[in-house]
Design a protein around this nucleic acid. Structure first.
Length: 615
DNA sequence: TCTCTTAGCGCG
DNA sequence: AAAGCGCGCTAAGAGA
């Protein structure tokens, strides 16, 4: 039964209108004030056939929208889509979505459902969650204790208490309680109210340009989530059983050697404490709580001095592979699509990168057999590309180091260049058999030193990367010095940035994201934020551009992004066109951030039948 | 039994 | 003078 009632937001009172008749729903839509920004929220419910799936209501493939709530500043309408149906209503909602401006809290969630259910050509929708995170990162040095839920933000910005109990309630019941309806009416009100509070702050911190980029990026990001990625379960199961065998073999040896009942980090630490010689224990690194560290780098560092610690490394590798990537992925396959549907979190990091979860595609092992399990839909191919040495490129662009800039312009190998500096010999005269080793040292040096790593960190990194426990801190101190000589302009930029940062305690990426830093982070995190964050901005721009090409008719789907890599899929006969378009979008995305930047050898896309083949 | 923290590790 | 950074996920262990 349709119902009109009053709702209170603090001291203000607004009208609300719950509608459960199709004809009335159309009247309610027409009652919305024209031309104003609209607060938007949806409540979703699992489809009956997926009631057994936990959290099904969060997946757009396993559930549908129960309520759409829209607030125009005076009136909040709640349309019950379980009761209101029909093509006419659907086309009117689609028209509303295509022609009005909206704002929602964590809009990517609502957008995924709205896109699937109403297929609008586009939706102009801002996001108060993104805005809140941007402001938090600009104002606070850490995220500790930060709550970004709609209720917490409303309390924080407007001082108004709203119960969020409705969010977890069952939205699939045939007849909603009045409480459910009342609270659902309030959600879009909260969104519009906090948006009004945040707008001047975004202006003040000069965050609007970056906010608008993230707002645009919602579209490709929702597409990637909805599209998902194919996964070969059969091959995966075989690979994992191989890992398990290796794990058990390594475990058996260790159990015999140590006499322990199980091999766990804390137990191993205790065993080492009682079994290693004192002179080794004195040098062994410890955790914050005083226990012996039991990580791979420590084992690799001490493998040379004590043969007893060597077998722990291999065990750990397979322990992680089986627990993180064995079986867990299969559980996340979507029952409706049979695919993985990772979630990308806009503003999920303080630098401006995306983060990813359920599953986190970004941490997939580089193992060939593993990556080859990610596949296109039947009859399709992958087209993928990554930015070549994007962080070094951005380091060159922001620092204006003449040697780095020239190296990119001439298409040279920057790792080899640092390698020859370390060797103290010109590249041409460097003996062939020594080239690989020095290049690898140069690579480790380039990646660690731009963020201020010292000899100690560098030594651990080099020992692991080069599988050589004999590398000393004296040697890596020389790598650091060589880096400062070879890229002297970069060093000067870094020092200057550090000094400025210690005064302002803030750093801004080229794309405009502002980050507040604690003083102890001004040395390493400041250059990292600028370089990593601006690189991420290039990718955001390129995703937006590529999706625009798709909207204009390019026959492709966006599938995934892994920081500097973008993957699409298409029919084989369209692959060449898609490949060219992807390269264009990524080069253009870089140029949006660095209009005069060097794009030589920046991107080369590949066509393949699985993720591994794109490398 | 559940929740929270710590240590460790996968990736870029 | 010296200082790697950014995530998400898992198991183990501690505490409520």
């Amino acid at each position: 039964m349709s119902r009109k009632f009053d709702i209170k937001f603090g001291t203000e009172t607004f009208k609300a209108w719950y509608v459960d008749k199709t004809a009335t729903a159309r009247l309610a839509l027409q009652a919305l004030k024209p031309d104003v920004l609209l607060g938007l929220d949806c409540e979703t419910m699992a489809l009956p056939k997926y009631h057994h799936v936990s959290q099904a209501a969060l997946s757009p493939h396993l559930s549908s929208i129960r309520l759409i709530q829209i607030f125009d500043g005076k009136l909040s309408i709640i349309i019950d889509l379980l009761k209101c149906k029909g093509e006419l209503l659907e086309s009117e909602i689609r028209h509303l979505l295509e022609t009005r401006r909206f704002i929602a809290h964590n809009a990517v969630f609502d957008l995924a459902f709205l896109k699937r259910q109403f297929r609008p050509r586009s939706i102009d929708c801002g996001c108060t969650f993104i805005a809140f995170k941007l402001l938090a990162h600009a104002a606070r040095p850490t995220d500790d204790g930060l709550r970004a839920g709609l209720d917490a933000v409303t309390k924080g910005l407007c001082g108004v208490e709203v119960l969020k109990s409705n969010q977890a309630s069952d939205w699939s019941v045939p007849k909603l309680t009045f409480e459910q309806i009342e609270y659902s009416a309030l959600d879009p009100v909260c969104v519009l109210k906090i948006a009004e509070k945040m707008a001047p702050a975004l202006e003040k911190y000069k965050l609007y340009d970056f906010y608008n980029l993230l707002k645009a990026a919602q579209h490709p990001i929702v597409e990637m989530h909805l599209n998902g990625i194919g996964f070969n379960s059969k091959e995966h199961i075989e690979l994992v059983s191989g890992w398990r065998e290796k794990l058990y073999a390594a475990k058996k040896i260790l159990l015999q050697q140590t006499g322990l009942d199980d091999i766990t980090g804390p137990k191993v630490a205790k065993w080492l404490e009682t079994n290693l010689e004192k002179r080794i224990l004195d040098d062994w690194p410890r955790t914050d709580n005083g226990a012996l560290k039991t990580d791979a780098i420590t084992f690799s560092d001490f493998g040379a001095v004590s043969p007893a610690v060597k077998p722990f490394g291999a065990f750990q590798k397979y322990k992680v592979l089986t627990s993180d990537f064995g079986g867990k992925l299969l559980q996340q396959l979507n029952e409706e699509t049979g695919r993985l549907h990772p979630q990308y979190h806009i503003c999920g990091t303080r630098t401006g990168r995306l983060s990813c979860s359920k599953p986190n595609l970004q941490q997939s092992p580089r193992d060939k057999d593993f990556r080859s399990q990610f596949v296109p839909s039947k009859g399709m191919v992958f087209v993928g590309a990554d930015y070549s040495a994007i962080e070094m490129r951005v380091a060159a662009e922001v620092s204006r180091d003449p040697a780095m800039l020239k190296a990119f312009k001439d298409g040279l190998d920057l790792h080899m260049m640092l390698g020859s500096e370390i060797a103290g010999i010109d590249i041409e005269t460097l003996p062939k058999e020594k080239c690989d080793r020095y290049r690898q040292m140069g690579k480790v040096g380039n990646f660690a030193c731009i963020y201020g790593a010292g000899a100690k960190t560098l030594a651990s990194q080099a020992r692991k990367a080069m599988d050589d426990t004999s590398i000393t801190e004296t040697q890596t101190g020389e790598i650091r010095d060589a880096h400062r000589r070879r890229w002297a302009g970069y060093r000067a930029w870094h020092v200057k940035l550090y000094e400025k940062c210690m005064e302002t305690l803030r750093v801004r990426t080229v794309c405009g994201k502002l980050r507040r830093l604690a003083p102890e982070f001004c040395y390493g995190a400041a250059p990292n934020t600028i370089i990593q964050g601006s690189s991420a901005g290039c990718m955001l721009q390129s995703m937006v551009l590529f999706q625009q090409m798709i909207d204009k008719g390019l026959k492709a789907k966006l599938i995934a992004t892994i920081h500097d890599e973008l993957i699409a899929e298409c029919l084989p006969q369209d692959a060449n066109e898609v490949k060219e378009t992807l390269e264009y979008a990524m080069v253009e995305g870089f140029k949006r951030v660095f209009p005069n930047g060097c794009t030589k050898n920046l991107v080369e896309a590949k066509i393949g039948n699985n993720w591994m083949e794109l490398k």
